[in-house]
Amino acid sequence: MIEQLAIFSENKPGKLERITAALSEAGVNSRAMHAASLGDMGVVKIVVDRPEEAYEALAGQGTVRKIPALAVRVPDRPGGLHEVTAALTRASVNIENASGFPVSGGEAILILEVADVPAAERLLEEAGFGVLEAEEFSEAVGGP
């Protein structure tokens, strides 16, 4: 299980820039970013290599929460993603949000938000998938 960050933000020019500036200042590497909006406001979600430091950097200037997510290592080839979603479907687990990115070694990391993270984690591990813990995740996605 890893932690991603969710930031409440008004939908105005400069709001996203403020977030990226704080992360850059803290020397945190962000690997995925997702903004969902309701018109005048929204929630920005980011996946970073060091969530604790990113949280500290952002907490000083906004409303930010840590939310749990799954980081699953999959082979970076056609069908790699499908194997994971198929396993979750068989267990009737609903995926609320998903993103992913390639890492070195011909692999990709898939970020999944589900209602019951620990249960989904057990299930995927039992099915033989590599589910990353926070430290492994930092190592795998950390900047140079």
């Binding site: 409440f8 929630v43 939310i67």
Partner: peptide, 18 residues
């Protein structure tokens, strides 16, 4: 102004609160 303590990170929460 939103109370930062009750925000749990989901857009749906903000929508229903509104």
């Amino acid at each position: 102004e939103l109370n930062a303590d009750v925000f749990f990170g989901e857009l749906e929460q903000l929508q229903s609160l509104r």
